[in-house]
Amino acid sequence: MQDVTQSNWLKRTILRTIAITLIGLAIVGPLAGTLLWSFAEKWYWPSVLPQEIGLKYWRTSLSGRSQVMDSLWISLVIAVIVVVIVTLVSVPAGYALARYNIPWKRILLVIFLMPQAFPQLPVFINMASIFYRYNLVGTIPGVVAVHVVISLVYSIWITTAAFKSIPAVLEEAAINLGASRLRVFFRITLPLAMPGLIASSIFVFITSLDEFTGTFFVGAPFIQTLPILMYTASMGYNMQYASVIAILLTIPALLFMVLLERFLKAEYISGLGV
């Protein structure tokens, strides 16, 4: 009897170990490969591990005015501008959608979803041709505009949910004591919605930092953001630079994901049903 349970336990443990290892490999594998490549100074096929390992590519990438650093700055500047613009639009929009009975509310939200619903390439090619008319192609404002369009939908949905999760009675209590609408918004509503707004901003920041397709059609080759540079590098079989950039791009995303998990409360997610 005991033998049977013991062998069952053994079987289960082995199966679990295999499953976890496979899942782990699927997640960590590609990342580990990238990490290896970024340190490989010589790595010829069919060797399993690099022949020479060193910091050469990291050093050149991170030194003063390298192309990687330039791209990093452009990416960061674009991301920050995008976050500011998107927040300025989605906070009032999200508040209005959460609090007021706007006619066509659902349709409005679906319209914001539109650019995501169609295949990305035709949308971006169309954008590029429109932007061409207004001399926006190959400019930072052009790239910012593309990123804003892409992230606005997430941002509006998350901010709407954040405002919705705040009971209206908290605002009424403040009005009742004599506060103007503006004061109620800045003293009560905004502070309470802040975790959701921060989560939304983080989301937008990462989306902008990682965005490739739209930037490629509207910005390249003049605006070299990090993802564009990574693409160029890997196309030129410069796997080391591409790997360094990939890791640079992963760091803020990882950091923010940890923060995001803290800020994005279950209430907001449940508030998403409009």
Binding site: V169, L170, A173, N176, P191
Partner: peptide, 13 residues
């Protein structure tokens, strides 16, 4: 007027 709400409506922050 001053109102006391059923849910108290105290500001949690």
């Amino acid at each position: 007027t001053a109102m006391v709400f059923q849910s108290y409506a105290l500001w949690p922050h």
